[in-house]
């Protein structure tokens, strides 16, 4: 069943459609929000909220974009709402530990995630949507309600920033002031 059929099944309130929606999209949406929020419990909550909103509003899905783009757009709104309203407190992060082979992949992910979170939020969001969520530039423009040219620019400069060497302070101490 492709996404269009899934959307139609959701509109018809077919019982199996919910399960398929969660099976297909809970993981990617959770990953997206987790990377943005860096907080598992928040990501779980926002992912659930995203799916609930999608389920409630499926009638308004016209098929102008793909179901994936539409869901990401809802998720992105949930995330921006959370970001706007959350308390501004300062988390404490510690310097990275010794690398262990078994943790190599986790380290790579976390290292990149940490670096992503040193970038401006719009740049980080564009990079995650493109390189992790697999959305096209046009789809990112829809999700973030941003012109295509701006998305391109953010991706370009974001990649460039990511490839810059860490500054000494980043090497020894991560201090991620929340935005």
């Amino acid at each position: 069943m492709d996404d269009r059929e899934l959307a139609n099944a959701l509109k018809r309130q077919e019982p199996y459609a919910l399960e398929l929606l969660v099976e297909r999209y809970h993981g990617p949406l959770f990953r997206f929000i987790r990377h943005l929020t860096r907080h598992r419990e928040t990501a779980e909550d926002l992912t659930q909220q995203t799916l609930l909103t999608a389920h409630r509003k499926i009638g308004s899905f016209r098929g102008d974009s793909t179901l994936s783009t539409w869901l990401h757009r809802i998720a992105f709104r949930e995330y921006t709402g959370w970001r706007r309203k959350r308390r501004i407190l300062v988390p404490l992060e510690l310097l990275r530990g010794v690398h262990e082979p078994a943790y190599a992949q986790i380290d790579e992910a976390e290292a990149l995630l940490q670096k992503l979170h040193t970038l401006p939020a719009p740049t980080r969001e564009a990079l995650l949507l493109h390189h992790v969520q697999g959305l096209s530039i046009e789809e990112i423009a829809v999700v973030t309600e941003t012109p295509v040219g701006t998305v391109k620019s953010r991706l370009h400069h974001g990649r460039k920033r990511l490839q810059e060497p860490d500054s000494p302070s980043q090497e020894t101490l991560r201090y991620d002031k929340q935005q």
Binding site: L18, E19, V22, E23, H26, G27, F30, R31, R34, H35, E44, T47, Q48, L51, L52, Q105, I106, E108, A109, L112, L113, L128, H131, V132, G134
Partner: peptide, 16 residues
């Protein structure tokens, strides 16, 4: 590595 991250099945069940 970021793409490899998956959600918790329990969380998915809760959402369902």
């Amino acid at each position: 590595a970021l793409r490899a991250e998956t959600s918790d099945p329990v969380a998915a069940q809760k959402a369902l």
